[in-house]
Design a binder for these strands. Structure first.
Lengths: 232, 232
DNA sequence: AAAAAATTGTGTTATATTTACACAATTCGA
DNA sequence: TCGAATTGTGTAAATATAACACAATTTTTT
């Protein structure tokens, strides 16, 4: 077999930031490590790229092992490759974030990985460069969600406009005007009125909408200037 | 030394798309390969990540070897990791694009690498997944330049507004209204009037501006909605 | 020397979008 | 039945955008 003889082969890891939303605050699915290295400390969920495995397949595998979910929304953030970032051995890590509906995932699978939902605002310090990874993930989530309709990935199939607003307020840690928010969301034409109402409410029951997946691609840029630039 | 015993080490490459602008059209700096594999075919400039080398350092090294320039603007696009993408051996490639002033780079260094400026519109087919990389790079350049003031990286230190407009027209392959373009650019307050005029012109000599690097960071989002969403 | 051609700089108006704010309707419990 | 909490919709002022016109500069042509 004809190879590249003079180059070094390096461990390739993948680390994922999984975001969730409980109706009030943004959460992270973090691992309390019961394995070496750094046993007992907190980290992101990760894994190594295998010899005959596509990168994308590896990302899906790692997300599946953590959540029991397939076809999750995720996107690459960047590849971390400082020499000493993993003290055990030179390892580069392809970092990505995923958005899931917090009630959808398999609790047993999370338990098996020793994973817990942690409020983003109270997150513990993480191993290696994982803190930096979370910082970049939040930055990219804020950037992307201001420009594109990806927030829906964090909500149930059917949701109300006030729920969506609370999500945006959590992502950007800022209050938003109810009336302008509603108009702006509806003007994207991405929401379909299901005709149902949210029965959980103790006051006026809000309309339940779902995402118009037909229009999702064509309207992917409809969120431009959704948040003011200062928020990003 | 404590290692991860059961994981596979993999070749890690970096491939870069170098954009330039000759005043009329967008150009790519491509390699006519005089080495194996795929000798004689066209490819992107690339190289392998070395054992004791930071990822960022490797990117700078590869860009330096090609252009003779340091501190070039570049950003990561994504990591390509399909199993068969390099037929010689499993290799993942971290792909990034760089923007340089086409007149700045060291011609000898480019010649040593067998590199040529190729018009983006007439580019030859490239090896491996490099065509896909260029497609993604152009997409990301269009996206980013519509939202942030990165186009300047492709121009000389001092430039005129009509030159900047031609650059944007090349990036988006579309004509723009001169008057609205000028007003929008000036409203960002990112341009400093140097007091000089472009002496190369055969008609009215345009004002030479330079980028206000003090304001560059704080105004990084000032380009939001610079191009209409349909362009991106 | 005057006129023509090419290009640059600035202004104006109609339209669309954004922001700030007000009021009416629904639901439940006191 | 009234009040509290929440949801849905409306309106007017300010701002931004898009479409368009004209004057100024420089070189070339007549």
């Amino acid at each position: 077999m004809n190879r590249y003889p003079h180059s070094t082969r390096i461990l390739v890891a993948l680390d994922c930031i999984v975001f969730g939303f409980d109706g009030e605050a943004l959460k992270l699915l973090l691992i309390k490590r019961d394995f070496e290295p750094e046993k007992g400390k907190w980290s992101l969920m990760g894994g190594f790229l295998e010899a005959e495995e596509d990168l994308e397949v590896a990302a899906n595998r790692i997300l599946y092992d953590l959540t029991g979910l397939k076809d999750i929304y995720f996107e690459e953030i960047k590849t971390f490759g400082k020499v000493g970032r993993d003290p055990v051995e030179r390892t580069i890590s392809i970092c990505f974030f995923a958005l899931i509906n917090i009630h959808d995932h398999n609790q047993d699978q999370a338990k098996a990985q020793n994973a817990y939902w942690i409020d983003l605002k109270n997150r513990p310090s993480l191993i290696f460069d994982h803190n930096q990874m979370v910082d970049m993930a939040l930055e990219q989530l804020r950037y992307k969600a201001a420009l594109h309709p990806i927030g829906f990935e964090l909500l149930p199939e059917k949701f109300t406009i006030p729920q969506l607003q609370k999500l945006y307020e959590a992502i950007y840690d800022t209050p938003l005007d109810r009336r302008n928010f509603s108009r702006k969301i509806l003007s994207t034409k991405l929401l379909i009125d299901t005709g149902e109402k949210n029965q959980n409410s103790t006051t006026k029951k809000a309309i339940l909408y779902q995402l118009d997946k037909e229009k999702y691609q064509s309207q992917f840029n409809a969120f431009h200037n959704f948040m003011s630039d200062a928020m990003i």
